[in-house]
Nucleic acid binder design. Structure first.
Lengths: 117, 117
DNA sequence: ATCGCTGCAAAACATTTGCAGTTTG
DNA sequence: CAAACTGCAAATGTTTTGCAGCGAT
């Protein structure tokens, strides 16, 4: 938590070693997973297990199920990307804006949907 | 391109095999990379190389450099998540909304910043 | 003849898991 | 003592790479 920015497991490992020199990378991964599962930490972008390709160039958002990792497109007409232009640091050239709405899909809500993985 | 949704390399491989039975998975990966680099395809969420952890629970957006993969937090006050509540499919339980502003950061713009990776 | 694309196999990573030993309460 | 946590090493899964061959220009 004391690390700045958005550390990787390796970053956390390096940091942890300063206090607990014998700690292993596996333990770091195990603890990160525990924290992610508990919601104490989040992932910067959801890990789908493998690369997912986006052929749809129309402006749209993604509805992502954090349980089964399904991705559904959501029309983005009426969405104003300009609202984000304010407050950007100088020199940052915006290419596109990705909006991911994370949650639990209908299918996973109903029934005892097993954790996908 | 003809595949629905957001196919994985494996999906594309399966599909390609129907037309070109001898094609290899490596070729599929190579071509996906070419298309990604050319902008013909996009990644659903940017691949950072490894998991990135998010300790910041305050509402904020991410400024992501698609070149060096750096992540910067951007305050999200004044941002109205309710605008996304409309048009959601029934039964989808929203947990959080992630806004990633993808582009090229200042540092990478200036000078011949080498492609990270 | 050259250049680019391919398959194959191996490498390189990132992440998880089994297991046996420790620690904690 | 039971439950939770750890290190290690091995397994898994994804993606990249080296290389030799093949095809088109």
């Amino acid at each position: 938590m004391s690390l700045p920015g958005h550390p990787s497991p390796e970053d956390i490992y390096e940091r942890a070693r300063k206090k607990i020199p014998a700690i292993s990378l596996a333990t770091v991964y195990k603890n990160i997973r525990t924290f992610l599962d508990s919601g104490m930490l989040q992932e910067v972008s959801l890990h789908h297990g493998s690369l997912r390709v986006e052929p749809n160039h129309e402006p749209h958002h993604h509805l992502v199920c954090v349980n089964c990792k399904s991705i559904t497109d959501l029309d983005a007409s009426g969405f104003d990307p300009l609202q984000f232009r304010r407050g950007l640091p100088r020199g940052f050239r915006v290419k596109r804006i990705a909006v991911d709405i994370l949650g639990i899909c209908q299918r996973c809500s109903s029934a005892g949907a097993p954790k996908h993985r």
